[in-house]
Design a protein around this nucleic acid. Structure first.
Lengths: 208, 208
DNA sequence: CCTACCGATCGGTAGG
DNA sequence: CCTACCGATCGGTAGG
């Protein structure tokens, strides 16, 4: 599901935020929580607004439409420090471990996993406003993983019979599927361990 | 996602169906299509009714509430020949291949995959009317797969280092994740091939 | 099965 | 940011 990495807390003493910016952040936070609980279609502007103590018309002063709010949520996720850096190093084993590290981060922030699982599932529909966003994310994740497996193959570190494209597709599918199962039974599913085990199973030698 | 196998067509000359039964079947079919397209919450009784040429009040004559209609859809799926039989043989390699055979069936019936992917994702929410249904289905699938891998382990046919519980969890997660990716890019994803490859990778010898 | 209705809720706008 | 409103849509019921 590719949840992004959240930014390190900015110093609250910075004072660089106007009151409007703070309000905007409050709204975005409430929207993330709501989307995670109820999905996009299941989240009303009135309920999101109620959670930050304003009316839905007040919310529309900050975000001109329901879709604009969703777009802002996704943009913020992308903008937050981490994701881009984490997924931009050179492909290879370290890149795959970074991908798993992202899953490890997500396990400590279940809200993000819920948000992405919910939205990604809804966004399978071609007319969903987040459809393209997720399509692009999946494609990027697959390509990044595929390049990493190809790099390992070039070094002769892939087990015989392992195809880089297949391994990449499987890894991404596994991250998705495991996150959903983890959501419904957190005690029983070792998300990070299962992913490490999977990657290790594709390699000739040990993991690191 | 565990889509069930559809019944072989019953003879249309049977005549055992009253007009009311036919209408009920029409409604169920339209509901399945709508749930696949828009999910449960996104499907209105009025639109489902419109597709079968009646009013939404007319639909409520056959199914007393929106939840009752969903329950009927899921019950019919379970009742349909195949699922129970297909997933009730003795655990083992053949059972795993039956599971994959189910995926193969689903690939030829994308509507079922969409229905299950959509509903399963929505039903992660604890208050969703299909929540328990999917929880039970996942648990059953995992246990069936785990027993199969344990049987293989007892015969010494599992590769060294492969844990039956882990392999089962991963297989089910993989089926889920791959189905979603397949839905969004059917040309690029070989659902059945990927699953066979995964199972083969857990074994010491060849697949069959 | 339908017409006709109910109360509730939705996203969005006007106008301040 | 709010009050006040709009048109649309929702699931469900009454009464036939």
């Amino acid at each position: 599901m590719m949840g992004g990495v959240r930014a390190a807390e900015r110093s609250p003493t910075t004072g660089g935020y106007s009151k409007g910016r703070i309000r905007r952040e409050d709204i975005l936070g409430a929207a993330v929580a709501m989307y995670a609980e109820a999905g996009y279609h299941g989240s009303s502007l009135r309920e999101i607004a109620r959670r930050v103590g304003i009316t839905h018309a007040g919310l529309l002063y900050y975000f001109p439409s329901k879709e604009a709010l969703l777009a802002a949520v996704l943009e913020r996720r992308d903008a937050e420090d981490g994701e881009r850096e984490h997924l931009t190093g050179p492909p290879g084993l370290e890149a795959l471990l970074r991908l798993i590290g992202l899953a490890a981060y997500n396990v400590r922030h279940p809200g993000i996993v819920e948000l992405y699982s919910r939205l990604a599932a809804e966004a399978v529909a071609a007319d969903h406003p987040a459809h393209e966003y997720f399509e692009q994310h999946y494609r990027m994740a697959r390509e990044y993983a595929a390049e990493s497996f190809r790099a390992l193959a070039a070094e002769g570190r892939l087990r015989e019979g392992v195809d880089p494209e297949y391994a990449a597709l499987t890894l991404v599918a596994l991250m998705d599927g495991l996150q959903v199962q983890w959501l419904s039974d957190r005690g029983r599913v070792d998300l990070v361990g299962s992913l490490r085990r999977y990657v290790a199973g594709q390699l000739r030698g040990p993991l690191e």
